[in-house]
Design a protein around this nucleic acid. Structure first.
Length: 885
DNA sequence: CTAGGGTTAG
């Protein structure tokens, strides 16, 4: 008896202290030799111990040797053994067997069973087990409760987890940790933080589990101050000696976009594991410091074992850096190290090779994938798009749609393909995508909606853009920007303005693109007041130092009649590029300040900016509007010989304009003859305008014929020719041209003018009698005409382009030209002496130019007129353009 | 019974 007791306690001690499998097997052999292997006590110990050394098979064989009448202790051991080794189905199988036996489970049975349900994400089994627990009344047990909280939390059923937690009669730190971790890992960061703060109010002191579980919440909620506080707590309490905690701190600072703090944590870590390296590599990647990402990897290759996650991060960095060599090296390394590549890594490889421009390899990886998921398809399609092969991207998409798999095109697929249809201006394809997207409800995705708006706009269907926009429930900054830009592109400024004011009333925050689309809109509309407001607004949002914003402001102010403001913006810019200078030169040109434009060009050259072809257009344009013929020609020569820039059609048109404006008609015609490229309608149109002002009707007719022969797309040129024939009284030609225009269903942009008075824009169309104060306007114009007649004014009937029988009727039409209505309206609605500013969408006609000069003299006012081409400042009977319009 | 790291667009 004595021997028996002492050998029992000896074996029990030997079992507990065995520290490796071999030792355990020797003790096991001893147990068998002593005939103790059927004993419940030793068998239970052996089952536990074998599971500890990851030998569940041995655990099971021990279990089987125990007599059929097993007690609950043995059952719990085997269920726990399988559970600990991740063999959850086995755990549940033996739990089932236990319930079939006569033995009833105790509270120690359930934590493992619950964990098995959690591990299998088996919510039904979990519910069943929960019911059984409630029947037996074990739910009040701390360990059972903790396991339940954990199970529900893992399954994402945070409401139920919280309920169990709230109903627990006793809670410990594990209960809190399980709930915090559950909230965190499912993205419920606020809740996670709330529970953590509740915990902090209690007497319980957080441990490393708590800290590492709540850290992601701090990182994602960007609560920097509190995050730093938690860091302090981690240092004080000593939990930062745990590597997981440090990894969490590292990740948090990276989420905060504080690489310096992150780096300090990383450098001060005594122990790092591969997660530490992966976290910092991936964090640098997300902060777009890709070089740093790669550097950490290369410099620490001997410090840690890169795993498949390391590889995927580094590969992504390679993609961003377009470093094909390193990508191939890492890929090769991964293959040789024998890592199993899952779909995620393969997808990354497809993306990276695509980004590096190696579509052959990308395609090989793609082909080699046995199970292609949506991301695989998206990645290869995106590769082709990035490499400019839009048609192949389309082809692959069609192939994808034909595949009978569970993988379907998602919002990203559609987003990419909508942009393909946009870039190809393929309306039919775009419409097909739209209907697909509507069928699967993806159209409610904000980005997809935005892409569709853009697609329709760029395919010329602005009406459909607006339809989508109006039907959208949520809109972001991009939505608004896209719609405004659609209106501007289409020339529908009225809607553009309306949408802009709606946007300003909404809570959406403008971004740089907002300003880069609204400023040019103001420029086109010469909406000075709105332009200034937008300028103030962008100052508030801190965009004033942006180069492109400065460039847009210069253009806006110059087109709104504020040359000084343009210059002020120009002066304040810390950085200037060729666009900046071009804007300024063009601005001077518009105001007839040719010398200043030339000076600016010299300054630009001095500042080391290399001129491009556009700046020369501005130069010649400026010279043209200031009568600087020689200087303009010199600029053209300098461009060709000194800067080796081949002139484009626009340059030739500018030179023709330059010569024509100065009435050098024969020179202009010679120049056109000598052009190395075939002159288009714009060239001839320039010449034609000059012919008409100089009265060279012979050339005018010849040139008009040319224009009609060219059959230009822009109806403006045909109308110009038609007007020339009208002046020649060749009405048959006029009606022929008009008819062909009508046949083509082309409608000319009708002429209109507008004026801003008391923060309101008033628009006038030619001959419009429905405009406000129409009666008064006509009356005052009549008075003005009689006053003008005294100055010797005779209306120029050549400017009338339609064959009207009565000279009187022609005069009526002239008097109806829209800018005159706008000017008269301005005179009627402002204090005497106030300067007026009138805008016109077309060029001012010669007769209106004369009339405005006279009006400025008669009423003693400055009248600033901006037409489609430039500014005219009328003052005391003269114009700033010195009649070179 | 409780903790951390990876994919596609713009």
């Amino acid at each position: 008896m004595q021997t028996r007791v002492s050998s029992s306690s000896f074996i029990s001690r030997a079992l507990s202290s065995s520290s490796n499998l071999n030792e355990l097997r020797r003790v096991h052999a001893l147990v068998i030799s002593l005939g103790l292997d059927t004993s419940d006590f030793f068998s239970g110990k052996l089952i536990d111990k074998y599971s500890q050394f990851r030998e569940p098979a041995s655990s099971l064989s021990v279990f089987r040797r125990v007599s059929p009448a097993k007690n609950v202790y043995i059952w719990n051991s085997i269920i726990r053994a399988f559970c600990k080794n991740g063999l959850f189905p086995k755990s549940l199988e033996f739990y089932g067997k236990l319930r079939e036996s006569k033995v009833s489970p105790d509270k120690y049975t359930f934590p493992s069973v619950i964990k098995a349900c959690a591990g299998l994400f088996d919510a039904n089994m979990g519910d069943l087990v929960y019911e059984q627990i409630l029947e037996m009344g074990f739910e009040s047990d701390l360990y059972v409760g903790n396991a339940l909280v954990d199970m529900f939390a893992r399954m994402g059923l945070l409401g139920r987890a919280r309920q169990v937690f709230d109903e627990m009669p006793v809670r410990d730190l594990v209960s809190w940790n399980s709930l915090i971790s559950g909230y965190s890992s499912h993205g419920y960061y606020e809740e996670s933080l709330d529970v953590y703060n509740e915990l902090r109010k209690s007497w319980i002191v957080p441990d490393s589990f708590t800290v590492s579980s709540v850290l992601p919440a701090f990182g994602n909620l960007m609560v920097v101050k509190q995050g730093q506080g938690l860091h302090g707590f981690a240092l004080k309490s000593g939990v930062n000696s745990v590597v997981v905690v440090n990894n969490g701190l590292l990740a948090m600072y990276l989420k905060f976009s504080r690489p310096t703090d992150a780096r300090r944590v990383f450098d001060e870590m005594v122990v790092r594991d591969s997660v530490s390296y992966n976290t910092i590599i991936c964090g640098y990647l997300n902060l777009e410091v890709h070089e740093e990402s790669v550097r950490i990897f290369l410099e620490n290759l001997d410090q840690f074992n890169p795993d498949i996650l390391t590889a995927s991060s580094v590969l992504r960095a390679c993609g961003h850096l377009r470093d094909l060599r390193l990508a191939k090296y890492v890929h090769d390394h991964v293959l040789r190290a024998g890592f199993v590549l899952d779909t995620t890594v393969e997808n990354i490889l497809i993306d990276v090779y695509g980004k590096c421009g190696d579509m052959t390899t990308a395609r090989d990886v793609f082909k080699g994938l046995e199970c292609k998921d949506t991301v695989s398809w998206n990645s290869i399609i995106s590769g082709y798009i990035q490499n400019g092969d839009l048609l192949e991207a389309m082809r692959l998409f069609k192939l994808m749609m034909m595949m009978i798999t569970e993988e379907q095109a998602d919002h990203i697929t559609y987003l990419m393909l909508i942009s393909v249809s946009t870039r190809l201006a393929d309306l039919k394809f775009g419409q097909g995508l739209h209907s697909n997207v509507t069928k699967c409800g993806i159209n409610f995705d904000l980005s997809v909606g935005n892409a569709l708006i853009d697609m329709y706009a760029k395919c010329g269907e602005v009406g459909d853009s607006l339809k989508i926009f109006n039907s959208m429930e949520t809109r972001d900054t991009v939505t608004w920007n896209t719609v405004i830009s659609a209106c501007v592109r289409f020339g529908d400024f009225a809607t553009g303005l309306q949408v802009t004011s709606q946007m300003r009333k909404s809570k959406v925050v403008p971004d740089m693109a907002t300003f880069l689309v609204t400023l040019p809109m103001c420029a086109s509309l010469a909406a000075k007041r709105l332009g200034k407001e937008i300028h103030c607004c962008l100052l508030r949002f801190g965009y004033e130092s942006e180069l492109r914003i400065g460039n847009a402001l210069i253009e806006m102010y110059s087109k709104c009649g504020c040359l000084e403001s343009s210059f002020r913006v120009f002066e304040r810019m810390s950085r200037r590029d060729v666009v900046t200078w071009t804007g300024m030169i063009y601005a001077y040109g518009m105001y007839g300040e040719g010398e200043k434009a030339l000076e600016a060009f010299v300054d630009m050259e001095k500042s080391g900016i290399v001129p491009d072809s556009v700046v020369f257009i501005a130069i010649i344009y400026a010279c043209s509007h200031s009568g600087l013929v020689e200087e303009g020609l010199a600029g053209f020569e300098k461009m060709k010989t000194h800067y080796k820039i081949d002139p484009m059609m626009e340059h030739y048109a500018c030179v023709v304009d330059l010569l024509s404006r100065s009435q050098k008609i024969s020179k202009a015609e010679e120049f056109i003859q000598a052009m190395p490229i075939k002159p288009d309608a714009s060239i001839w149109a320039s010449l034609l305008r000059a012919c008409r002002t100089s009265g060279d009707m012979e050339t005018a007719e010849r040139v008009s014929r040319r224009i009609i022969e060219l059959n230009p797309d822009d109806p403006g040129y045909s109308i110009l020719a038609s007007n020339a024939y009208a002046a020649l009284r060749k009405w048959d030609k006029v009606s022929l041209i008009r008819k062909s225009l009508n046949d083509k269903l082309i409608k000319k942009n009708p002429g209109y003018s507008w004026i801003e008075i008391c923060k309101k824009v008033h628009v006038f169309r030619a001959g419009d009698t429905s405009a406000p104060q129409s009666e008064a306007i006509h009356k005052s114009l009549e008075i003005l005409y009689s006053l003008m007649a005294r100055e010797g004014y005779v209306p120029d009937s050549r400017e009338v382009s339609q064959n009207l029988q009565e000279e009187e009727e022609k005069r009526r039409l002239i008097c109806g030209h829209s800018e005159r209505l706008a000017i008269a309206f301005g005179l009627l609605n402002t204090e005497p002496g106030t300067p007026l500013q009138v805008m016109k969408n077309l060029r001012v006609c010669g007769d209106c130019h004369e009339v405005t000069k006279l009006i400025s003299k008669i009423v003693g006012r400055e009248i600033l007129v901006r037409d489609a081409n430039r500014f005219h400042l009328f003052k005391d009977g003269t114009c700033s353009c010195k009649d070179r319009w």
